[in-house]
Each structure stands twice: as C-alpha cells, then as structure tokens.
C-alpha cells in the first residue's frame, strides 16, 4: 500500500503557507465568493492570492486544490464558470466540485483539469461514483461522512477513482450537500451561499441561568456562567425531545480518525483530509504538523499518536464519528 496523501485546509494565504511548511501534501482553498462552501467573512482567496499560494506550494512540490463546491444559482452560472476558468488558468492541481452543471462545464472546457468530487455531492455508493467518472472523468471522490470503515473499504475496491476521507475537524452528522437545516432557520445554506449557521444570525444572551446561544431566534444551547460557550452550529445544539434535554444530532465534538489509520490503509484510501478552512494559521500549523508526524510514524511502521490534538478539538472532545458503526 502506498503512503497517504495529506490534504489540509487553508482559509487565508498565511494558513496555506503554514500548511505547506508543516507538511501538507496538498492544500485546498476557495475563492472569496459564494462559489465555495466556506464562504465566511474575512476568509478565502482573491485571484492574485490564489496565484501566489499556488506558486508557494509548487515551489515546494506541493499541490493546491480549489474548492468550487456550492451549487450554482439558477440563471447566474457565470461566477461558477469563471471560478473554473480561473482555477484552470492559475494552474490549480485539481478543482473540488459538487454541482453537476459545474462538473459538466469543467469537463467540457478543460478536459485536462483534474476533477475531484466534493463531499457536498454526497456520492455514497459505487454506482454514483462510477457514473460521474464515466460522465465527467472525475479522478477522485471525497467520501461523504455517512460511511463506516467497512463501507469505505467495499467502496474503494469497487470504484476506479481515488478516494479521499476526512480524518480530523468539524463533522456534519447529516449527509453533506443535502442539508437545509441552516436554511430553514436563517435563509442561508451550505449549498447556495456556502455557509452553515452563519455568524450574522447568531446571538448570545446572558440570562439568570447562564449564557444562551441563539441562531435565527432559536436557542441552540445554554451554558453555565463558568463554562465557555460553543458556537451555535444548529446540528451540534441541545434540544428537548421526549421531555429530555439532549444533544440530539451530535455533541459538540471533533472528528479524529487517526486511530483508524490501519483500517483506512487496508481499505485502500488515497488521501486523508483535515477539515477547517475557517481556522487560523496557528491551529492549521499545529494540526497539520501533528498529522504529518503521525503519518510519517505510521509509514515507518512505528506507533503513532496524537495526544496534543486534544487541546485543538472542538469542545475538547473527539469522535471517530460515522466510521464506527456504534455512531449510528
């Protein structure tokens, strides 16, 4: 089995350089508009910054993938087409795409541009993936976080494209690219605007019993005064069901699947991906370096560990998520 490729997030040029310096094989980033699924204020790359980022990575024999993974607006496909045009012109090593319209455009105009299927495309079985290889020539699929490791293994053996899986960072408990929860409450969705639970709709309220976090007028969680409040991502909130307050969909945890490296290697996974384009440079530097060290140790047949990641996980807690059947 070959060594894993380590795919790291960058929301800013500084984060891109940090990821490259810390040992990323490839960095993924998006343009500063709603063509990518991390369309947050102050994040992402101008065309000029992307050009410089690609130059920085290529000078060090690393790659840059450009995420163009929202769904194009009806009647206004031009920004998505332009993003593909510019990615090709800037020499991106791949584009990460979810919308069939954008895939079709890229495949027709730039047959040599490497196409990766975004996790937002939610291709969860070999039938879907093979169709997209035949139709658009996709070379890699980022697998949706609805598969357990045995599903991943079966799938890898049945498809003629590379597979990439998330191993660290925030984790959607819902099938990605098919979730309108944020949209229902705020009018802004990952698929259309590239945002989930946007900060513009978040309010923090101090009440007698502590700090309440709200999204679009709904209470998402409540924290005692002495506890740090988490960000009110809708699916990580606490709700009342059957008279009981509970984290219904998912606890505020981070995915950490490094313990599953042997299984993922056995499955035939090509690339391991870290979530977090919204994260700062220091976080990226630390997380990427930890993963680089762990993967290098794994390659040498040594034991690997990631104890220092504990302080970096969301809410301080970690999960192997959907990779283990008990999660369901």
């Amino acid at each position: 089995m070959g060594r894993f490729e380590l795919i790291c997030p960058a929301g800013t040029p500084a984060a891109l350089r940090a990821a490259v310096d810390a040992g990323a094989d490839s960095v993924y980033a998006g343009f500063r508009d709603d063509t990518n699924a991390r369309n947050f204020p102050g994040l992402n790359f101008s065309r000029r910054e992307m050009e410089q980022g690609i130059a920085y990575a290529h000078a060090r024999h690393r790659q840059v993938f450009i995420a163009i993974n929202t769904f194009a607006v009806a009647g206004n496909l031009a920004p998505w087409h332009r993003a593909i045009d510019d990615a090709a012109a800037l020499g991106a090593d791949a584009v990460i795409v979810a919308d069939y319209a954008v895939l079709a455009y890229a495949a027709r105009r730039y047959p040599d541009l490497r196409l990766h299927l975004s996790v937002q495309a939610s291709a969860s079985n070999p039938e879907a993936i093979t169709m997209l290889r035949e139709q658009f020539g996709i070379r890699r699929v980022v697998l949706p976080r609805v598969l357990d490791v045995s599903d991943v293994g079966r799938l890898c053996h049945e498809v003629d494209v590379e597979t990439e899986v998330f191993v660290f960072g925030g984790m959607c408990p819902m099938a990605e690219g098919r979730c309108a929860l944020s949209s229902y409450v705020t009018g802004h969705s990952p698929n259309r605007q590239g945002v989930c639970s946007p900060a513009s709709h978040v309010r923090y309220e101090t009440r007698d019993d502590g700090l309440v976090t709200r999204l679009g007028g709904f209470t998402i969680n409540r924290f005692p005064r002495d506890e740090q409040a988490g960000y009110p991502t809708l699916c990580k909130g606490r709700f009342v069901v059957l008279e009981r307050e509970q984290y219904l969909f998912e606890e505020p945890t981070s995915l950490n699947a490094l313990a599953l490296l042997p299984q993922l290697a056995e499955a035939g996974v090509t690339a391991l991906k870290i979530e977090g384009r919204q994260r700062g440079r220091a976080y990226i530097e630390a997380v990427v370096r930890q993963h680089r060290d762990a993967l290098d140790a794994f390659d040498r047949g040594e034991t690997w560990s990631s104890p220092e990641l504990d302080g970096l996980a969301e809410g301080g807690r970690e999960t192997t998520g959907a990779y283990e059947r008990r999660w369901r």
Partner: peptide, 29 residues
C-alpha cells in the same frame, strides 16, 4: 440519490427533491 441516477440513466425517469438540481445546467444534464 446518485446511485439511482446512475441506474436509471438512458430511460424515462423522474428526479426527486433530495437530488440536487439547483440550476438549468444541472437540469439539462
């Protein structure tokens, strides 16, 4: 879902609301 799209291609079929058809480009495909 995408698997059904693959299996139904080439014959008349319908597309459900859980398949992402957000624009006329996807619709044409």
């Amino acid at each position: 879902d995408g698997g059904a799209l693959a299996l139904l291609g080439g014959r008349p079929h319908m597309i459900g609301p859980m398949v992402n058809c957000y624009n006329e480009g996807a619709m044409a495909w």
